[in-house]
């Protein structure tokens, strides 16, 4: 082995990587396996069956979970749409707005929801809603989700926009295209992959949130995480493992989707002049 070839590689790093993947996946895979357990006990193995998957859709808790899933999905879609729109506008303003006073303050404000610990955001939002008498319910959850999704949508969008040279817009403007037309027909198609990954990231972040939702959810409103938490507090049941496995599959589909969007983005890098 010659030195220059070998220099990148360290003994043991491969082993640590494998250990890392085992740690990351072992609990998930074990839950996945036990979700096919026929026994009602979570400790004993009673053979392979799909009964807990049937239970998720038809069992006594199924109505609750369906409603929670619907709430989670609709909130996530709306929160991701609104926050991606706001973040796209903000990214163009920040990166195509030239130098201006308060630029770093603007950036700090946009990243504020990431910097403030979740539990603090939860407390502040609860106090705020309670002081102004805003009724807790689906709307309060949606508003809070929009706020903390903005920076997550902003990051990929602005990263993409930074990689796009300005000549395209300038060419369009030279041809008397309006600013809207410049955005719609020149900038947006090139920004597309960034906007899409921003949307997906915001979507998954909203779907994932437990702490803030738990603080400000109103009467009768559950999202999947709060419903699962409520259920898990009384003990891990096999139907929760089946539900978790389904959600796991859903996440894997999403991440695969975002992976391919990323690949397409790489395949079509921002054009260079």
């Amino acid at each position: 082995m010659t030195r220059p070839f070998d220099i990148r590689h360290y003994r043991g790093f491969f082993a640590v990587t494998c250990a890392c993947l085992v740690i990351l996946y072992a609990p998930l895979i074990i839950v996945m396996i036990y979700s096919f357990n026929d026994s009602a006990s979570i400790t004993n193995w009673g053979g392979v069956s799909l009964r807990w998957y049937v239970d998720v859709f038809t069992g006594p808790d199924s109505e609750k979970f369906k409603l929670a899933a619907w709430n989670s999905l609709s909130i996530a879609v709306m929160a991701a749409t609104v926050s991606t729109t706001i973040a796209t506008a903000a990214a163009i303003g920040m990166i195509r707005g030239g130098q201006f006073k308060g630029k770093s303050a603007s950036f700090a404000l946009i990243s504020l929801p990431i910097m403030v610990p979740e539990i603090v955001t939860a407390v502040a939002t609860l106090i705020f809603f309670s002081t102004i008498g805003f009724k807790l319910g689906t709307l309060s959850i949606l508003v809070a989700h929009i706020v903390f999704c903005i920076p997550f949508a902003y990051l990929p969008i602005s990263a993409r926009l930074q990689g796009i040279e300005a000549s395209f817009e300038e060419a369009a403007q030279d041809l008397y295209a309006s600013r809207w037309a410049t955005f719609r027909y020149v900038l947006m198609p090139i920004m597309g992959p960034g906007i899409l990954s921003g949307f997906l990231l915001a979507f998954i972040i909203s779907l994932d949130d437990f702490i803030i939702t738990n603080f400000i959810k109103g009467a009768g409103v559950e999202t999947l995480p709060t419903a699962i938490f409520g259920s898990v507090k009384q003990g891990i049941k096999p139907n929760i493992m089946a539900l978790s496995t389904l959600l796991l599959m859903f996440s894997i589909c999403l991440v695969t989707l975002s992976y391919f969007i990323g690949k397409r983005g790489e395949a079509n890098p921002p054009p260079q002049t």
Binding site: T85, A87, M94, R96, G97, F100, E169, R179
Partner: peptide
């Protein structure tokens, strides 16, 4: 790629956030 194509409207763009 510093550009100022949208600088006249940047306040409107940043306002929602």
């Amino acid at each position: 790629t510093i550009s100022a194509t949208f600088s006249p409207v940047r306040h409107w763009l940043l306002m929602p956030s």
